[in-house]
């Protein structure tokens, strides 16, 4: 099948996942980025100390999502009647008959379950690397799952949705913002920051290096 010599050489190559261009890896310096010359996809973007930052941010995300799920995030009042709604309420707004129940579950997954799962997976994978330990079992599967879930983590979209809903209700009733609204706003910034700090190439490289029996 493969020549043993090829195998070591392949380690020094990188294929752009978006356009298949093949490059010899030349690791960029701290805060520099290696970009595909053809399609401009960012291939490598290492940052020193990013690991600890990412773990810290992921922990914050978990705490915030759990807290934001419980506290009310918007409150309306009109003519003396008030109603406060938490994120869980919003997700379960659809819970009616059969198909709507599915939609309720999907919404809950997109705005709460998947963001939390991603944060937990990232902690699981990266925390050992930060402390120079061997990766935990199945770390590469965990990181792969976390990456696959990335487009489906929609906490930040939900936060913008809150703003739109605010405008729509404004002429129907008086709206006030609950504590969870602000937690979610912070969360949006954190999720975006986390994705831009994370250099996938560095993580895969580290997992590969650490997993190798010595």
């Amino acid at each position: 099948m493969t020549h043993p010599a090829d195998r070591t050489d392949l380690d020094a190559l990188i294929a752009c996942p978006r356009c298949d261009a093949l490059y010899k890896v030349r690791e960029p310096a701290h805060r520099e980025r290696a970009v595909c010359a053809r399609c401009h996809h960012v291939l490598i973007a290492p940052r020193r100390g990013a690991g600890a930052q990412i773990v810290a941010v992921a922990l914050t995300v978990v705490v915030l999502v759990v807290a934001a799920t419980i506290f009310p995030f918007l409150e309306v009042s009109v003519g003396g009647a008030t109603n406060a709604s938490s994120i869980l309420d919003a997700a379960l707004a659809f819970s009616g008959s059969g198909l709507f129940l599915l939609l309720a579950l999907a919404v809950a997954a997109l705005i709460v379950v998947i963001p939390v799962t991603r944060a937990l997976l990232v902690i699981y994978v990266i925390a050992p690397l930060v402390f120079d330990r061997r990766p935990l079992p199945h770390a590469s599967s965990a990181f792969r799952l976390s990456e696959a879930l990335r487009p489906w983590s929609m906490a930040e979209i939900f936060a913008i949705g809150c703003a739109v809903a605010l405008v729509k209700v404004a002429d129907l009733a008086t709206v006030s913002l609950g504590p969870a609204f602000w937690m979610f706003s912070v969360l949006v910034v954190l999720v975006v920051a986390q994705d831009s700090f994370l250099c996938r190439y560095s993580v895969w490289k580290a997992l590969e290096r650490e997993a190798r029996p010595t």
Binding site: S85, I111, M154, G161, V169, A173
Partner: peptide, 16 residues
């Protein structure tokens, strides 16, 4: 997806 979320938020919120 924002549309769906807005519907979810509105229908959980506006229950007066």
């Amino acid at each position: 997806m924002i549309d769906v979320f807005v519907v979810a938020i509105l229908s959980s919120l506006v229950q007066l």
